[in-house]
Each structure stands twice: as structure tokens, then as C-alpha cells.
Design a protein around this nucleic acid. Structure first.
Lengths: 285, 285
DNA sequence: GCATGATGTTCATAAATTATGAACAACTAC
DNA sequence: GTAGTTGTTCATAATTTATGAACATCATGC
């Protein structure tokens, strides 16, 4: 029992005969007879009563006709779903905590409005875990902090973030690495690229030599900085989303402060929802 | 795209590879590769991403997998429905008005309790229309009043009805045909076999010479007889179901009064619900 | 009664599809 | 580096499906 058998069967019933079905299907009559007989033996049931060279649908045929209808309709739907131009299904997206809090909501809202048939599974993580997740196919794409070095990954710049150092109001102004000597650095758990920016600015003075306090929430980090626990390097866009009146911002040299947030994905894999997202980002710029 | 393609596809996904799928399906690997590639080109979409000699389900593959699941499940259900031993679907049954009122309810209740998946479409009619309906396949079977002469129809005796003449209490006793001289005969519209019984009893005195009043309801007939409009010939079993205290019964000679109610059907057509009904009737006797 | 034009079936053969097995290429793990 | 994976390709075999001719039955009209 396959779909073409069912299609032939359905046509015979609808057209009310072998000959008319054959005409409609552009096949020869004997073929229809054979396929019907074959279908009958494959389901081990008589589908038609034969009487005076005429076919009459039997109760079993009636039963199968119902299923044939459903099956053919469903198969048609499957083909349409696949050939459909609009993306659908699950789209597994990753993003940094900071991006999720600041820039992502607007994009996600627009994306969902444009492609309501796509369910976005959002996972947050650090630059490194997200990059690995995309490479290992646990994610389809991710917004991260560094353009990946891996050859299998492709990327496009989406946002430019300005990183600022924040401290409590009591802290004296920060202009050079030396100005934070002795301070505790509050940062995301390891793997976050923004820490590497800080390292580069500090130069030799590696983070290993300064005290690091790890927190997995920007809300918590800003709150801790405000209460004088330490200093932190955060994207300016994130500060706009949290209570940030109680922290002082200190600018970094442009070469350090400006980082791009790229969208990364596996090169050469045609994921419809991802293609759609890239187009949407390009046109929104 | 056919069901076996989908089955292969589903197995590849479930088993996580071509080779394991081939083992499970008792086929050679190259066959699976080919069928998958063929399926991909038939739906014009990439179902798997190939990377380092491994297959990874693509979003389109994910989509198709959902449909494949549904389709295969539905096909399985269809086969079970057909091979199922218990009858199901629509069963088109006919019966005389009298049978419907008197003997049928009990049988129908039992039948429905035994075979809840069968929907009985009951149609009432006269002996002749019902017989024609069965012969012409508008009905699967019918309870009628005469064993059919047609060769294509088969039958079995189910009930024996005792026909009685009824009149108003004012009417003098009826023993011979002469006793109803001048009376109006109230009967079902033409086609009812019980009228022919009356004709046979009357002998030469054909119904054409007596006044006939046609009513399509036994309730109405009994009520009219009670009020003295005329006489009627009805099955005794029907009288039990209507207000019959106001009519007088007159026995007919046994040879006329006893008629069997046969169930008739098209010979040599295997309708599961009908077979079930016949078995049920036999065992209920 | 007899030809005509329907119907569906059967059968040998042709065409197309599907399955096989061998050879191959690329990657993993020891 | 070698053995053991993986999936692909290709020529060939096996199977399935389509064709066309011959046939049988029935309804219709003259």
C-alpha cells in the first residue's frame, strides 16, 4: 500500500470506473485494474464489488477511501510545507546575556511578527560556549562577541557595542590600567569575550593577578558595582536596561571599547529561518 | 514521495545513520543512500546536512519527519481498520414500517451494543421499494415481507408475523371475505406485501373493487380503524406497540395469517456488518 | 436478432524503478 | 599508521509497474 496506489484508488472511486480513471491519470486501463487488484491483495480486503462489468465500492472500500483522502491530503500538506517559501519550525538561537537584555528583544519581536510559524528557542551563554554550540549543531546561530576563527563558521557584524568601565561613585576616575590597581573585577563566568577586552587593556597585568568576582547576571553585577564591591566592564547598551544611576562610567580608549556583536552560523548550511533572520537584519539597518 | 521512502527516512533519523538503518531494514547501505537522495530531490529540499561522513537532520528534515510520522501512523491505522475483525463504518439497513415499530428496536439495540463502531442508517419503505433498494445497492440489507424472487438476492427468515384483521368494535364479526363487503380497506401505500395477503384471501374480489384508503403510518391506521373509517390488516406485533384497545381483532385462516419477515441481501457480497447481523440474529434465536 | 459501444479482465512484453555488491573516499580512535 | 567507522558512487540484477492487444460481458439502438 503506497500513496500512488491510494491515488489511483481514489480516482477510480471519484470517476466511477476504471476507464475514466485511466483517462484522467493518463494511464492505460489494464494498469488501473492491476493496481487496484494489487491494492486489494495488499490490504487483504475486497475494495469493490464487481457486478455486470461495473465496480461498486464495498464497505471496506468506503473505509479505505476515508483513509486515502486523509493520507493524500497530509502528503500534499507535507510537500507544501517543505516547498513553502516562508520559514517555519524550530529555530535554535543563542545570544550573550547582554545582547539578550539589550538589543535582542526588538529583533526578536520583529522576527516573530514577520515569521509567526517559526518557534525561536533562545539559549543564553558566553561567547565561547555559544560558539561551540553553533559549531556542534546544538544551535543554528548565535549572537556572540568575537568573530569566530573556525573555518566552518561564517558571520556577519550586527551591532557595535561600546564597552564602559563602571565603578561606584566613590571610586576615583579611571584613565589608565594602574587606576584600578587593587580593585576586584566583577565579571561574567569565564568564557565571556568582554573579559578578554579587559585583559588586553590591562596588558601584562593579567586578570590572574587581580581578584575576580563572577556573577552570571548583569543586574547583579551593576548592583554590586554600585555598592562598591568592585568594578566591571559592561556594554553601554546594557546599562540602559538596568538601574544604573548609582554607578560612574569611565571611558576606555576606542580601540578597546568598541566591539562588534556578530551573528555566527555554520557556513554552507541552508537553514531557512536563519536566512530569513539575516535578511531581516540587513534590511533593518 | 511514497510511504516506503518515508519509512526509510524515519528509520535513518531514528537509528542515526545510513548503515544502522540499512541493518534494521534488511537492506544494503547503498540502497538507503539512494532512496534518501531520491526523497530529497522529490521534495526538492535538503533533508540532511552532510558533515564529516555524518548525517545531521536539517530543519526541512525535521519538518518532514513530523509529517512522515503522521503519515506512517495513519497508514498503519488504515490497515488495522481494514483487517480488523469487528465491523465498522456505515451499514445501510432497510425495514418495513411495521418491523421498525415492533421487532427492530430490540435487535438494533443489541447490534449497536455489540458493534458500536457501526453506524446504522435505517430507511423504512414498503416490501417492493426495499427489495429494489437492496438489489440496486442503495441498501446493504432489509427486513421485508416476501422472500425475493431475484436470483441476486439471498435471504433468511427472521420473524414470523401473525396478521390480523382489525375493525372498530361496532363492526360485526369477520370470518369470510363476504363479511367485509362494502368496507373501506385502510392500507399502506402500494408496494406493501401485506396487501397482497389480503388480496389472496379475498380471492377474485380484487382490491380494485373495494375502496382503499392509504396511510403511511400504523398509528394513523389503527386510529382510523378505531373510529370506524374502515378495516385493516396489520401484524399482531404492531398492535402491541400502539393504542389498540379500541379495535376488534378478527383471525384469518392460518395459511393467510402467518407470514415470515425475511432479511434480504445481495448474494455473494461480503459486507462485514451484514455478516455480523446475520450471526447475531442466528444466535439470538 | 444483431451490430455498436460501453464496461472490466487477462496476459505477454516493455519500461522504469529499486536493490545489490563492490570499490571508493573521508574521518575517528587506538 | 592502521583498523574500524562513516556515507557515496556505479554497474548490474531483480523487481515492480506500464503498455497494448485480445477477450468477455453487458446495455442500447436499429
Amino acid at each position: 500500500m503506497n500513496l500512488s496506489d491510494l491515488h489511483i484508488f481514489k480516482t477510480v472511486v471519484e470517476e466511477g470506473g476504471i476507464i475514466r480513471a485511466a483517462r484522467k491519470l493518463h494511464r492505460v486501463q489494464s494498469n488501473i485494474t492491476t493496481r487496484i487488484k494489487q491494492l486489494e491483495s495488499s490490504v487483504d480486503a475486497q475494495l469493490f464489488f464487481r457486478d455486470k462489468q461495473r465496480l461498486f465500492l464495498s464497505p471496506n472500500g468506503e473505509l479505505l477511501l476515508g483513509y486515502a483522502d486523509k493520507l493524500l491530503r497530509l502528503a500534499e500538506e507535507a510537500k507544501n510545507a517543505l516547498s513553502g517559501t516562508s520559514p517555519r519550525g524550530v529555530f535554535r538561537l543563542g545570544a550573550l546575556e547582554s545582547t539578550t537584555a539589550s538589543r535582542l528583544p526588538k529583533i526578536l519581536a520583529l522576527f516573530h511578527k514577520t515569521y509567526p510559524d517559526v518557534r525561536v528557542d533562545l539559549k543564553t551563554g558566553t561567547n565561547d560556549t555559544l560558539t561551540a554550540d553553533v559549531a556542534d549543531r546544538r544551535l543554528d546561530a548565535a549572537f556572540v562577541a568575537e568573530t569566530p576563527s573556525s573555518k566552518v563558521l561564517s558571520h556577519m557584524a550586527v551591532f557595535t557595542e561600546k564597552l564602559v568601565l563602571i565603578s561606584s561613585h566613590q571610586h576615583s576616575s579611571i584613565r589608565r590600567p594602574l587606576d584600578i590597581h587593587g580593585d576586584t573585577v566583577i565579571a561574567f563566568p569565564s568564557g565571556c569575550a568582554y573579559r578578554r577586552v579587559l585583559e588586553r587593556w590591562l596588558g601584562d597585568r593579567s586578570l590572574a593577578s587581580v581578584r575576580v568576582f563572577e556573577l552570571a547576571s548583569y543586574h547583579a553585577i551593576v548592583a554590586c558595582v554600585a555598592s562598591g564591591t568592585g568594578i566591571a566592564l559592561v556594554p553601554e547598551s546594557v546599562l540602559a536596561t538596568v538601574q544604573s544611576a548609582q554607578v560612574t562610567r569611565h571611558a576606555l580608549p576606542k580601540i578597546h571599547s568598541h566591539v562588534v556583536t556578530p551573528l555566527i552560523w555554520r557556513r554552507a548550511e541552508q537553514v531557512p529561518a536563519l536566512v530569513a533572520l539575516r535578511e531581516l537584519i540587513k534590511s533593518a539597518r
